[in-house]
């Protein structure tokens, strides 16, 4: 099962839960599952960046999530 980890600023949307494991095929499905579990979380997730297996995406959508994937949500990075 893919491991999904939330940073501090998202915990208010997950009722304090820091991580969970679930089966999905891609990021779009992951979002749908999380929204079903914690209605309203989609907005803040869409404003976050996400790292899937070490690769940072700003605005992921169809990126695959494998059974052994690690998914980390994190703050978006801008830059100068």
């Amino acid at each position: 099962m893919a491991r999904v980890v939330f940073p501090e600023h998202l915990l208010r949307h997950t009722g304090g839960q820091r991580e969970l494991e679930l089966f999905v095929d891609n990021y779009r499905e992951l979002l749908a599952v999380l929204e079903e579990r914690w209605p309203g979380i989609r907005g803040p997730l869409n404003k976050s960046a996400v790292a899937i297996d070490g690769q940072i995406y700003q605005g992921a959508f169809l990126e695959p999530v494998h059974a052994d994937s690690e998914v980390f949500f994190m703050a978006r990075i801008e830059g100068g």
Partner: peptide
Amino acid sequence: QAPYGPKFP
């Protein structure tokens, strides 16, 4: 594992 979450490539 980077302090901000993911493992470094």
